[in-house]
Design a binder for these strands. Structure first.
Length: 141
DNA sequence: GCCAACGTTGGC
DNA sequence: GCCAACGTTGGC
C-alpha cells in the first residue's frame, strides 16, 4: 500500500466536486508533467491519497482512494499523457494547512514543502500518519 | 498582483 | 547536447 498527494486548484476542481462524484470516482486528468504521470503509473487500486487545495486554501482537505489504474487521459489526443481515477473516501475533519505542515519538523522532507510545483507526489507512511493525526483522524486509514 | 521556481521548447 | 527564452504554477 502506497500513499500519495493530489493537488488541485479548488477553482478548477475542488474537493466538493470530487465528493459529488461519489464512488464512481473521477479521472485525474489534465496532468502534463512527466514526474506526476510517472507517479500515477506507480499507483495500485486501493492506494490512498490526500486531496490538497492549492493557491487559496493551501490545505489537505480530504482522503481519496485510487479506483482505476493509469490509463490514457481522455482530455488529450497526445498518447504520452495518462491518469488514474480516484474517489473521495472521507473528509479531513480539521484541514491541515501548508503552514501547519511547514511548522512540523517531522514533515520537513515532504515534497510539498520542497517542490511545491509537483502536482502528484508520493507521501511516506510516517508523513501520512502524522498528517492524519494533525487532521483529526484518530486512526489513519 | 508579484515574483521565484520549475519544466518545456527550440535554436544552434 | 547545451542553454536561453518562455510559459505556468503556486506561495505570499
Amino acid at each position: 500500500m502506497a500513499y500519495w498527494l493530489f493537488k488541485s486548484e479548488p477553482t478548477s476542481w475542488s474537493w466538493e466536486m470530487q465528493k459529488k462524484k461519489g464512488d464512481a470516482g473521477q479521472e485525474w486528468d489534465g496532468v502534463r508533467n512527466y514526474q506526476a504521470r510517472n507517479n500515477m503509473r506507480e499507483m495500485k487500486i486501493g492506494d490512498l491519497g490526500f486531496f490538497y487545495h492549492s493557491v487559496k486554501e493551501t490545505s489537505v482537505v480530504g482522503i481519496v482512494e485510487v479506483c482505476a489504474l493509469a490509463h490514457h487521459d481522455s482530455t488529450t489526443d497526445d498518447p504520452r499523457w495518462e491518469c488514474v481515477d480516484i474517489r473521495a473516501v472521507k473528509d479531513v475533519p480539521n484541514p491541515v494547512t501548508l503552514a501547519d505542515i511547514k511548522a512540523n519538523p517531522k514533515l520537513s522532507e515532504m515534497i510539498l514543502v520542497n517542490n511545491s510545483r509537483l502536482s502528484v507526489q508520493p507521501v511516506s507512511k510516517a508523513e501520512w500518519t502524522e498528517i492524519c493525526r494533525m487532521g483529526g483522524l484518530d486512526k489513519a486509514p
